[in-house]
Write a protein that binds this DNA or RNA. Structure first.
Lengths: 146, 146
DNA sequence: TTTCATGCAAAGGTTTTGCATACGC
DNA sequence: GCGTATGCAAAACCTTTGCATGAAA
């Protein structure tokens, strides 16, 4: 899923936020690197080349805003910094396989977790609104290297 | 699962680490608060009352060491600090239900995830060694408060 | 022209590190 | 005694915040 300029514009104005060049630039950084899970620092360096005057604080404020608007999803891979990617629009969430050797992160879809979630919710009287599933292990290319 | 003094001693000496009063005290903090998910700061304050001379850096170094030895498991609930609990020895991992209202963390066991894990591993040619599943939602008492 | 966004620098919170001293083995 | 562990303080790191300026509506 890639968010366009128009979608951003619409979402911003709906909440009386302004459409600034910085916000547009940061959105583009994500459309051009849709497959990575960018940290604020990553975004900062990506946009710095095109807009050298941009500040790191603006990047932090902007990715926070985008997350609030539902454009980005904040995630944590345990490396001490938050990472962001476009919110997936499909019915089923996707999750992450994190290689403990090369630290590459790949995605996978799951259908089964929905069933699991319903059972957990019932057994624990817990009203689930979101979930986060990560598998740690060795990716295929690291397996082949040995 | 609770680790005893003897187990700690054995695990430490096996790797030429020393058994110090600080390490013993920190272990006891976990045995006496086995149900909580303690942050380094939590541990620091717990042990400070009995051993006022202990340093925060020692707590950090010790929980890291215990995690390396497999005694503690480091976990992240997205609140900006790492938390630790005794490594569960059972065959099935347990996971967490995190209330987004009162931030209480409760545990649940799962049997289904094992099946899911096997399927994911096969479909993605990924050798899974660990997993981490979190559900975010509203706990029972918060549901009843409304 | 009003209000929100920005950039900069400083502060905040968690975790790590350097170093002299103390202590387990 | 040798080598690791400790305590303290400082630094490192990511992130947030205060404030004056600048720009969008």
């Amino acid at each position: 899923m890639t968010y366009t300029y128009e979608v951003l514009c619409e979402k911003l104005l709906a909440k009386d936020y302004k459409l600034t060049p910085q916000r547009e630039t940061i959105l583009r950084a994500f459309t051009e690197h849709g497959d990575s899970h960018l940290s604020a620092e990553d975004v900062y360096h990506l946009v710095k080349s095109k807009s050298p005057e941009i500040g790191l604080a603006t990047v932090y404020r902007t990715v926070d805003l985008f997350a609030e608007l539902g454009i980005l999803q904040k995630m944590d891979f345990g490396d001490g910094r938050s990472r962001y990617e476009f919110t997936k629009q499909e019915e089923h969430h996707h999750h992450h396989l994190i290689c403990i050797n090369c630290h590459k992160v790949q995605e996978f879809d799951d259908d089964l977790l929905e069933t699991l979630e319903a059972m957990i919710a019932r057994k624990n009287s817990f009203k689930i609104v979101d979930h986060d599933l990560k598998f740690y292990g060795i990716c295929l290319s690291c397996q082949e290297q040995t």
